[in-house]
Design a protein around this nucleic acid. Sequence first.
DNA 1: ACTAGATATGTCGGCAGGCGATATATAAGG
DNA 2: CCTTATATATCGCCTGCCGACATATCTAGT
Lengths: 120, 120
Amino acid sequence: MGNEKHDLMAANLLRGNTGILVLAILRTGAAHGYAIASEIAKRSENALSFKQGTLYPLLHELERDGFITSEWQIVEGERPRRVYTLTESGSKELSERLELWNSFNQAMTQVIGGTPDEQT
Amino acid sequence: MGNEKHDLMAANLLRGNTGILVLAILRTGAAHGYAIASEIAKRSENALSFKQGTLYPLLHELERDGFITSEWQIVEGERPRRVYTLTESGSKELSERLELWNSFNQAMTQVIGGTPDEQT
DNA sequence: ACTAGATATGTCGGCAGGCGATATATAAGG
DNA sequence: CCTTATATATCGCCTGCCGACATATCTAGT
């Protein structure tokens, strides 16, 4: 189905939630960028997809802010990978963002589903 | 207090969800712009707030797309109000957006709350 | 050996959408 | 009277995701 409007809106929903997703993945353990994006796609059953133009600048920003640290993983006979690890600060940041997400989610539910007299 | 970062992130979360909120309010019945914004604030316990710069252009856009219709309500001794009503098309659109929101919400939960059972 | 596709990292301009600032006007309350 | 809340409206700014592009290696099929 070539529903472009649908795709555009889904992309807009992602806005503001990219950081929390990456941090949440790294809570499981260290991973490199491409693997993070793959894991997000896998866990969400392809509902959420990270583009390169979103992923890498985001990782750089999160590192700049001290929420994650990176290290080049050089293995002979393999491509170099930049492996990211969640910092203490990042773990705390994740908690805050999870809280913020939950309260936003609750607020949304209260508005869009808050009416008892519905009609179909 | 003075958590500006928090506010900024909350504002970003709203992005892409303004339309669904307005349509959801109008499902209850016709209302004018200012009342719609007030109702959203009330239902969400002030967690979500619409700015004028967001509200009115959005209403015009929704009307342009045929999801709502408007009528000037002129009552003697009262200020003129532009009252908006949800159309059939708007009702259908709302259903679609609710579905989209639910699937996005579910996807988010699967990623950020996913239990780490295995590692690649 | 050659080719294609998945893997892997990165940059940059474009663009859409919410917000701040601003303008205008009336009703209500102190 | 004067401030505040109500009520509608416009416009330029800014932020953040995306498309397109660049580069390079590993794997699999022919």
